[in-house]
């Protein structure tokens, strides 16, 4: 499985999908987050592989 972390939330998703499809499955707008793997930023066409952890960084702030 692929682990996706967004702040304190942790999601598990099946591998083999693109980042875009994975976000869509989780109901997360790609416009509102940046995805990183081991600190490196990913584009939305990246295929997520079994066992990896993707950290999402929220980009929207108020004020």
């Amino acid at each position: 499985m692929v682990t996706i972390i967004l702040r304190r939330k942790v999601f598990e998703i099946r591998p083999g999908m693109t980042l875009l499809s994975s976000l869509s499955k989780l109901g997360i707008l790609p416009e509102s987050v940046l995805a990183t793997r081991n600190g490196d930023m990913l584009t939305e066409d990246e295929i997520l592989v079994d066992g990896e952890t993707i950290t999402l960084i929220e980009v929207i702030s108020g004020g």
Binding site: L34, T36, M41, E58, V59, I60, S61, G62, G63
Partner: peptide, 26 residues
């Protein structure tokens, strides 16, 4: 906003990620 967040991260700028408590639900 996403481009600015990307610039901050790629430039290693240490910024406050925590939201202002008053902006939650704004």
């Amino acid at each position: 906003e996403k481009e600015m967040a990307a610039y901050a991260i790629l430039s290693d700028i240490d910024y406050i990620y925590e939201e202002c408590p008053y902006s939650i639900g704004s």
